[in-house]
Design a protein around this nucleic acid. Structure first.
Lengths: 344, 344
DNA sequence: CACACAAACGAAAACGTTTTCGAATTACCG
DNA sequence: CGGTAATTCGAAAACGTTTTCGTTTGTGTG
């Protein structure tokens, strides 16, 4: 009942381990007769190579590591899906870790993956990440490395992103085009590059349309939760009763806003229009249906793995690899929550 | 710039590999002096044991495999989260695979994990799974094994489940208690045990309340999608315009129903009450808010890993392990979509 | 028949660790 | 001081594979 090994097959056939190994890997210097004998016996014994030994010998594990801030998250679970599918298609397995938006945990997990000697690492940074030392370590060890979505701009690695500035600008422009003028922004935390970029996009859109930027219309999430959406919606109506549009950093927050407005009877979009970001599934089934920005999450996963694979292949053959940055397309999805105002 | 090894440390210190290994693992037969010297040099060289070699030597990889039907799914992503968190807490990493509800893929993936020699396997079966041979293989190889949610009853392994019959019965009882009598059921596919059990629970509830069971009120999903919810809602209203309640196999389908009714102006719950299953996040933000059955998904993940860990520990020490089945509690979450009828 | 050459196989090293068991040294005690 | 016991160390095997480089045998050619 034990696991079959090359040695066992060799002994039963009265040949050497070397020949058995070669026969199974279809080397040209094994006669057809022995090849057949070996293959047939291997099948019979249900032989499969001991991957631990193969890993040690070949110095690769055909396994990659993936670190993301949150698994239970429409965007990230879609990315996971893309990565896992593409990886499997190419013979790789994926170890998933969740940083819980904690820099400390993220660092531990990078160390963990390095120790495990994964063949490559894909990461989307936590909101706390303002320190690059663990990423530098990955680079220093020459481990193939791809960042996506929430990236450290200054780290010289491949990246898969969207153009958050333009995407956000388009979202706000959509509000403006539909007649909304006094637009609040519920932004993400101060650290992450994409929260910064979306904020910049928000300002740009105002600027282009000659709407003065009012800092008091900007509200900053700490955790980017549904509850914060509710809280800020309340706050906004208290601070600025005449606001007529809200652009939220992500759909989850926008849904909080919607939920609060629905509960207290504020009409959307008649009184306030709302647009989110990321096109979460639920946004299309809410009342009113939420306008948002579509972000190709699954494709982001697939592309990230493809880039990593390229680098891993170069790494194996010891040919140099130049990191690339790929920018994927987004588009505004107009739904009920931003219907054109009647008076225009 | 190369990876430090025991050999290197030994040579630099003029001692044997054995002693270095022992020093790092705090064996009692190494003098304090050499221990300190070794540890300090190891730190300096940034030594970390080559996990490939450790795996080969110890025959374990501190890695488990997880196969689920769908990653982008509120219930499953919560389970993943629970498993990954609990695993990491105990020094294990998790390889995730998605069967896409395909038996064929599921079988391949089990084979993959066996070949990778993971220390244990956790699985929730695909809807197609009506063949146990791949699961038998896991048992035959004595690989620690836990099933959760969608299980093969006859396979002798640990299991983590809810009581689907009772949970479904409670959901339907809730509808009946609130005055609904003609209740349709949108059930899951014919194969999965939990779809069968929920259907049985539905029938039981009717029986207890002396409501005759009408097979034409039962609709069977193939893929359990949002779209099927829409389609069946339409179908139900065509077939039985006087239906006043719907129990759906899962929230996603219930949301489809809600969405269709909202679109065509059928009032919920005044005309038809709707209850789902699983308590997906979005169900609380819909209009109307969806009643459902809470299923402790995160806890299900945590519990699954704990059971697996127990078995892995026994396996290592070669002491026998008896598989256990753990049943977690569910409870009906009453929201707007099933408000009590006025006339009772 | 000698020689070259191809075909088929195997010995052995290497990957880096863990662990057993015996050897060497030191300390202790009567 | 002889002997025992404790302390400290290291040689070597083992885990199972891959791959290099010989060696042997058989085949064909001049």
């Amino acid at each position: 009942m034990k696991e079959a090994t090359l040695k066992e097959i060799a002994e039963k056939l009265g040949i050497s381990i070397t020949t058995v190994s070669k026969a199974l890997k279809d080397y040209p210097d094994v006669s057809l007769k022995t090849k057949e004998a070996v293959i047939s016996l291997a099948k019979e014994l249900n032989y499969s190579p001991n991957s631990f030994a193969v890993n040690l010998r070949t110095k690769e594990s055909k396994t990659i590591g993936l670190i993301i801030p949150e698994i239970v998250h429409h965007f990230f679970s879609n990315v996971i899906n893309g990565i896992v599918a593409e990886a499997e298609k190419n013979g790789y397995l994926v170890i998933i870790l969740q940083s819980n938006e904690s820099l400390e945990l993220e660092k531990k997990q990078v160390a963990l993956l390095i120790n495990k000697r994964v063949d490559g690492i894909i990461i989307s940074l936590s909101n706390e990440s303002n320190d690059d030392s663990h990423l530098m370590e990955i680079i220093a060890r020459k481990i193939p490395f791809v960042q996506f979505d929430k990236i450290a701009k200054l780290i010289h690695s491949s990246k898969v992103v969207i153009n958050d500035q333009i995407a956000a600008r388009n979202a706000v422009q959509h509000l403006i085009d539909n007649g909304y003028r006094k637009i609040a922004h519920i932004r993400g935390p101060l650290n992450p590059q994409n929260a910064i970029d979306r904020f910049i996009g928000y300002k740009k859109a105002l600027e282009i349309n000659n709407i003065p930027f009012d800092p008091s219309l900007v509200y900053t999430c700490e955790k980017v939760t549904f509850q914060e959406g509710i809280d800020f919606a309340k706050q906004i109506m208290a601070d600025h009763p005449d606001v007529d549009g809200i652009f939220a950093i992500t759909d989850l927050v926008a849904v909080g806003v919607l939920s609060y407005f629905n509960d207290i009877g504020i009409k959307i979009p008649e009184q306030v229009a709302v647009i989110g970001f990321s096109n979460w599934f639920m946004s299309q089934v809410l009342t009113p249906k939420l306008s948002t920005v579509d972000q190709p999450s699954h494709e982001m996963g697939v592309t990230s793995f493809k880039l990593l694979l390229e680098e891993m292949n170069c790494h194996k053959k010891e040919i140099p690899f130049s990191p690339r940055t790929i920018e994927l397309e987004t588009k505004v999805i107009a739904r009920e929550s931003t219907f054109k105002k009647n008076n225009i």
